[in-house]
Design a protein around this nucleic acid. Sequence first.
DNA 1: TGTAGGTTAGTTAGGTTAATTAACTAACGA
DNA 2: TCGTTAGTTAATTAACCTAACTAACCTACA
Lengths: 401, 401
Amino acid sequence: MSSNRNLILLKRTNKKIVLQCIKENQPISRAEIASKSQISKPTVSLLVDELVQENWVLEKGIGVASSQGGRRPIQLYFNEKAGYVIGTDIGGTKVKTVICDLVGNIICTSSFKTSQYLQTGLLKQIHKEVNGMIQSYQLDSNKILGMGVGVPGITEPNKGVVVEAPSINWVRYPFITEAKRYFSFPIYIDNDVNVAALGEQWLGNAKSKENILFIAVGTGIGSGLIIHNQLYRGSSCAAGEMGYMVTDKNDMKNEFKPIFHRYGYLESVAGGKAIGERLTNLIQQKPGHPLFEEASHSELTGERAFSLAKEGEETARLVVDDAIEHLAYGIINAASLLNPEVIVLGGGVLKSSDYILPRLREIVYHYLPSTVELNTSQLEDHAEVLGAVSLFLREYESVLN
Amino acid sequence: MSSNRNLILLKRTNKKIVLQCIKENQPISRAEIASKSQISKPTVSLLVDELVQENWVLEKGIGVASSQGGRRPIQLYFNEKAGYVIGTDIGGTKVKTVICDLVGNIICTSSFKTSQYLQTGLLKQIHKEVNGMIQSYQLDSNKILGMGVGVPGITEPNKGVVVEAPSINWVRYPFITEAKRYFSFPIYIDNDVNVAALGEQWLGNAKSKENILFIAVGTGIGSGLIIHNQLYRGSSCAAGEMGYMVTDKNDMKNEFKPIFHRYGYLESVAGGKAIGERLTNLIQQKPGHPLFEEASHSELTGERAFSLAKEGEETARLVVDDAIEHLAYGIINAASLLNPEVIVLGGGVLKSSDYILPRLREIVYHYLPSTVELNTSQLEDHAEVLGAVSLFLREYESVLN
DNA sequence: TGTAGGTTAGTTAGGTTAATTAACTAACGA
DNA sequence: TCGTTAGTTAATTAACCTAACTAACCTACA
């Protein structure tokens, strides 16, 4: 029983380097890998042969020789169909699942209403959907490497536990343990915002940047941090809670009361829920207002507030612009501290980004000493599922990472 | 000329693991290292022997056998005197230099006034001081491994350039290049606050924590971040600029003007300079005030403001408490985002920490959702020089890191 | 048109380095 | 004396490297 742990580890490492090199430079020849990777030609050849054997790499065609002559190189490609990964985004209203290949091409999608399956079990339904997709698209289930999942709440990724997810009534829910009843492949979970940040870094507006702040502005405000190319979760998995920032000291003195439990200051002045509430209140105090009827009937949504502001409605504009200002200072605070390459905005605000983004940029760029790219999500509602896939690919120990 | 790069790298890695293991568990036997480090006994023996040869490790005495008998183990110790490292803190008023052993014991200290040698060159004088210390303490100059330096301004550590350091009139000063004229050993530089953060993590109140925020409150407000055990400098070496945080939106509307160039909002309401200025202004408007004379004569310092507040002087208390509040919200903002294990306060405020710290804690602990340890620096004015030594030990590629 | 000479891609053979296992000696307690 | 633990030795395994090779191509010149 021989096992040269350390030497074998070295080989694995080199194999990863070679595969990485192919992924980033395909098509590429063995010789070129050798020169780029600081590994000798024979070793590269050996490792490539193994990768080809294992189907991670394909030899496809022959390139052109250099102008000075010489044998033509064998073209190596990363086999992006060598395996498939499932990405799931569990949301308060919808659970969305995709199956992707190894470079993030979405093969198939499926989703269901959260509320409809909360009683019978979300995992059970996810399992059904996944099986359905595998069947319809005739995927080889042996090629499914595993699944990544984004959860709307506080998670402990290393323990596989969802500590608290109010929108789906989970408290200390042992997700991974439960999931093992349905799935035989490895599964990784994380907070939905963290996962979206990974998505943006993998395929979105923060592609291949090292230091990223992803801010999700929806009902509340949360953020995901990627630092030194690594997801940063904080010492107790509570990093990124931008909703708790304070951008107006005076409001705090008047004994600030969050609009509901577990809500921070910033989200209670700049979150979608808060915006809608505030606009509704203001209008209800103006009986002559054209929206008085609507506002008395039911609370206006944040989304509605933004569309009204866009139309030029005065009260809405007041409320919305104030919220944007708060958010801008929150961003300035975060960016002063973190100095990221890029800040990506996601979540519900995306729908009104044409109104919000220029106003945000104006304030942020004015007061921020360092430069930063401030953008909205490119992936939009795909950020989470793709991020979930990315989470899996990062966490799953294989030749792929 | 054979050079098995990869294999040699593997050996170096293992050697580092072994030395690390000895550092953390000394005294320790070869056998114990083998079981802890997942490296086989013969390999450990070989590596230890080399480390002993190279003088990094000492065999000192023989331990006791286990109660079940067996040969008594040879006690291995890390040789903390195997080399010495110089740490220098360049400050606006003082340049302080120490020589340390490898675990941070300060062997000797020396300092001089910055202003006195700004013309003739700080490096020249540092060189003199270092030579002086080596002579007086009869240190073997071959054992000096190198030097770390903390600089009060913006630095580009990888290029060895000081981008801007107003207090010592450096603009794009090629520090490392200049230093090579005086010193033959390797030198590393970084921003003074970053360096202080390293110090606190090495030997201070943030000892061996993974995620740390060090905040220096002096004339201005800056911070140093350690994330995943690594110094985080940001994408353009501008991370940690807490001074630019905004904690009161309303002040910004009234076209906030920084009290001087390159000054952010938070430091212009909570920095030492700002506090002194504001108190002076207030008192100057009150002709009957007992401090009217003093304030008219010359501007009060921040330090004076704090001591007055401690004595119970009303106006000072007003000014100081307001500043503390602002700082508290700045800390809340940072901690919400980063969720560090510990926040360490340093800089000028330390002198009044008995007044400040409880008040800060009250606000921070009240509004922060996650828990965090909020403390003042333990190392006080040693944080920077020790951090500079730590910087060197981290950056210098050797068996030590 | 065809062939020699130079060039690059990839493989093979032989040798080096480092880590492992298994078996050993050393030293100890009971 | 036996069982146990510390540390070493010898033989083996695994990975990498260099150097020299074959394969395949270009150019140029006869």
